[in-house]
Every structure is written in structure tokens, then in C-alpha cells.
């Protein structure tokens, strides 16, 4: 399917939004203006942008500890995101969640997650609800290669396939779990080899190519919406910074040469070259995108810095719920395995 100019520019804009937000967050962390850990998504932008551009606004996603990019790609508000990272009351979680719990339910973004793999069963729950209520929505679970060694992923994949749910498992395989190479923790190289074991198709895409990711996601989402069940997309990608933070920690878990090779395939710059080459955009058009979004980032930083910290009496607010679910569904016959009753 040929991509329209609007879609091409949308893919680019979402990647630039992520890059600018993450680079700004990194600089703020270096200046000790952000409390807590910071896991930057720089280098992996093509995955979140390519996937989320193929989704509807009311489709659900679950995220990871490296979750800013997913929320930005789903349309997250810079002001509320930056305020949350600074622990301010105007943030997405009123300043009490921080980087690894950032979420926006109105955008279908069900949350970043500090526990590796823990987002996958949440996405299965969303997909279950989507199917049960016949809403025609799709859920996407973002997770890393390391998460596929976690029990939660296997239970989620098994249940999703057993119930034939409308879900896409989007694996960001960046080759490292924190500071450990993938081949030190698993005997296989391709995560897709695991998909077959659960009874779903799995495909590999170049995670540095936003068009490739987008094309694959269109296929997976169309399949899910049509009742075809789950699938797994493995995007081969790379994070340009360390597991957390910005500074080079002097760790030897990967070489400078390896990082340099991947940076030569920068997903944004390589896409920009193609946009110019095919006549979709001029260099001036692209510069305008960076400039306008850069202004938005500056405004978001100012907004966050000017925002108040949460009051002490807010400590336990939103921690416990008083809501009781009185919904009493007695007809469960429509929700049998594979939708067959």
C-alpha cells in the first residue's frame, strides 16, 4: 500500500516529537532537574511511530520502563509529560508516578511499567475487553527482547492465542537487557521463533525503518480487527544511550564501534533523506517540523518548571479506589475460545 504524503509526514513528525522530548529529558536529568530513573527511547523512534500511526485513537497500548516514546507516539501532551517527569502536580499522574508510570487513558495508553514484561498481560486484558464488548478495537503490547524471558509474557501470549484476541505483540529487540547481551540470556536469536509456539504468526521488520514497521503493523492490525487473532512483530532496533541516563558510564557491555554503526542508521535522519529524495518534503519543510516542535518542548519545560509540586495531603489520593464494579454479566457464552460458541 502506497503511503500518502500525510502519513509520511505524520510518521516523521511523531519520530521527531519523541527525539526532541527524550533529548530534552536527558539534558534535564543531567542537570539534576528530574527525580528518579530515566530510560531514553532515542534510536528506537521508528518502532513507536510506525506502530502508533497504524492505530486508531481509541486503540489501546501498554508500554515499558522505556515508555515515553510510546506515549508521545500515541499523542501524549508534552506539558503533562514533562511535568510528570519533574514530579509536578500538573503531570499525567499528578507528579506521583514519574517516568515509569506515565499514562493517558484518554489516549488508550494504559501505562508505562517499571516491571519488565508486566505490560503484556495488561494489553491482553484490554484486548479481552475489546473483543467481549465487540468494540472493534485493537490492543498493542510494547515490550523488549528481555521481557520474552519473563513468565508474564508467556502467559499473556498463551492466553491471547487461546482466546483469539485482537492484540499485536510489538517486540522492540534492541539486543540488550539492561547491560547484558541477548545471547547471554536466551538460546534463540529471533523472538519470532517463540510466536509459533503459541500459535500466532511472527514477523521480523527493520526497526530502524519507520515505513517497514508501519507496513507490518497495518497488516497485523487489519488481521486483528478482522478476527484473525494475535500476531507478533519483532522490530530489530537499538537504543543510542545506555540502559538508563545519558552519560557514558564507562561500561564495556557494548563497543563504541557498535553504537556508531547503529547511529549511521538513525531512523529519523535516514527517513528524512528519503522524504527529500522522493519529493515528499524539502529540507526547509523538515527544518520547520524540528523548529516548531522544539518550541513546543521549550514551552513544556517552562510549564513544568512553573508548576507546583503536589501537596502532602495528596499522598494517598488515587492510590486506593472506592469504586465497586456492580456489573453483573451472566451471559459468557459469547466469549469462548476462538470466539466459537
Amino acid at each position: 500500500m502506497e503511503l500518502t504524503r500525510d502519513v509520511q509526514m505524520d510518521l516523521h513528525r511523531r519520530m521527531v516529537r519523541i527525539r526532541l522530548f527524550e533529548e530534552a529529558a536527558g539534558r534535564l536529568a543531567e542537570a539534576a532537574k528530574l527525580p528518579g530513573f530515566l530510560h531514553l527511547y532515542v534510536g528506537e523512534e521508528a518502532v513507536a511511530a510506525g506502530v502508533c500511526t497504524a492505530l486508531n485513537d481509541d486503540d489501546h497500548i501498554t508500554s515499558t520502563h522505556r515508555g515515553h516514546g510510546h506515549l508521545v507516539a500515541k499523542g501524549g501532551d508534552f506539558n503533562r509529560m514533562m511535568a510528570e517527569l519533574m514530579g509536578k502536580a500538573t503531570g499525567y499522574c499528578k507528579g506521583k508516578g514519574g517516568s515509569m508510570h506515565i499514562s493517558d487513558l484518554s489516549l488508550g495508553m494504559l501505562g508505562a511499567n517499571g516491571i519488565v514484561g508486566a505490560g503484556t498481560p495488561i494489553a491482553v486484558g484490554a484486548a479481552f475487553a475489546d473483543k467481549y464488548r465487540k468494540r472493534g478495537q485493537v490492543a498493542v503490547a510494547f515490550f523488549g527482547d528481555g521481557a520474552t524471558n519473563i513468565g508474564a509474557f508467556h502467559e499473556a501470549a498463551n492466553m491471547a492465542c487461546a482466546l483469539h484476541l485482537p492484540i499485536v505483540f510489538a517486540c522492540e529487540n534492541n539486543e540488550y537487557g539492561e547491560f547484558t547481551r541477548r545471547d547471554r540470556t536466551m538460546a534463540i536469536t529471533d523472538i519470532v521463533d517463540r510466536a509459533v509456539g503459541y500459535g500466532m504468526p511472527g514477523v521480523i521488520v527493520d526497526g530502524m525503518d519507520v515505513v517497514a514497521v508501519h507496513e507490518a503493523t497495518l497488516g497485523a492490525v487489519a488481521r486483528a480487527r478482522a478476527g484473525g487473532g494475535p500476531s507478533l512483530i519483532e522490530a530489530k532496533t537499538y537504543r543510542f544511550y545506555n540502559h538508563h541516563g545519558v552519560q557514558n558510564l564507562g561500561l564495556k557491555y557494548r563497543t563504541d564501534d557498535e553504537v556508531a554503526v547503529w547511529k549511521q542508521r538513525d531512523p529519523i535522519f535516514s527517513f528524512e533523506e528519503r522524504l527529500i529524495d522522493v519529493g515528499t518534503a524539502t529540507a526547509a519543510d523538515i527544518e520547520q517540523v524540528w523548529s516548531a516542535l522544539g518550541d513546543d518542548i521549550a514551552a513544556a519545560i517552562a510549564f513544568a518548571e512553573d508548576s507546583p509540586l503536589p501537596e502532602p495531603d495528596q499522598l494517598l489520593v488515587d492510590v486506593y479506589t472506592t469504586h465497586t464494579n456492580h456489573t453483573n454479566h451472566t451471559d459468557h457464552t459469547s466469549m469462548t475460545a476462538r470466539g466459537a460458541s
Partner: peptide, 21 residues
């Protein structure tokens, strides 16, 4: 070829998967 038999056509057609094993 380690990546042969693992592309998008597993998703949108009836192409089969060939695992590393």
C-alpha cells in the same frame, strides 16, 4: 540465511515460518 522465511508475508499471507532450530 538466518532471516529467510521470517518476513511480513507470515502476517498477511499463508507463508510458513522457518525457525532457527
Amino acid at each position: 540465511n538466518p532471516i529467510a522465511g521470517k518476513d511480513i508475508r507470515r502476517l498477511v499471507t499463508a507463508a510458513g515460518h522457518t525457525s532457527d532450530s
